[in-house]
Amino acid sequence: MSKATDVEFFIIEAIRGIGRSPLMSFVAIGIVTVTLTIFGFFLLGVVNLGNVVSGMAAKLDLTCYVDRDLAPRDAAELQLKLSKMEGVEKVTYYSKDDSWKSFKQDYSGKLELSEVVSDNPLPNTFAVKVRNPEVLPQVAKNISQMSEIDEVRYSGKLLGQVKHFVDVIRLAGFVFVLLLFFATLLIVVNTIRLTVLARETDIYIMKLVGATGSFIRWPFVIEGILIGVAGGILAVVLLRGSYDALAFKIASAFPFLPVVSDAFLLNFIFISVALCGTVLGMIGGYISVSRLIKNA
């Protein structure tokens, strides 16, 4: 057994196979490219959406109210206690007097408050910033259990809705990508099958002179890999170019949207896309020749 000769044989046979029906091979590469590009855009969309959501969540604060009067010392003590809680990043204190002052300032002229209420109706407020949005509900629950705090508010409903939305998109996308994968697989299988049928005599003779199933299969698997790799590389080239251009446009049109530009994450996505093409081609090549390998 000389494996180097075998590998050389497989590769030459695979290239012969592509050369035998170049048009179909081009079509297959094109289709793989299109599917993988869609797939890649989808992945990029999902990571960007995730980025937007966590950006939004980061802006969400907890607001804790204390109705009774607080001496500055008690307030400072409570502030310290809150900031030591798990998951809490920063606590800012707004005394009821401060709040009343700024409130009156904001509404001066529009509304004569002193005519409606003589006393300060606002509570003392602690604005609590959490480390990450996932712990928000838990921190809120812990704080609301503290006897010193009268009420805790946060826009948990909005956060839940946004998260739900992202989950739905992820699931739909997953199903979509799966369908896309199988559609592409079908096309790759059928393309290679055309070259398989053109080589039916070759395969018959290979079997006749004692080639094993895997030996017969390798050239077709390699042919599939070549198609998949070509499609994958083209898709990555397309994705890279258009993502950079698109990200630049979005960033300048909507500066508040956090566009993903982390090179590591992006490269990871591009490599996944290319690998996906390779695997797709490999499976396609493998399946395409299966029926003919079966012996009587």
Binding site: T5, D6, F9, R16, D202, I205, A211, I216
Partner: peptide
Amino acid sequence: LLRRTVYENVAFALQVTGAP
């Protein structure tokens, strides 16, 4: 095999058995 020479047709039978 019509796309292969006489030599290649004969050698093919050995290649597919993994001969050196």
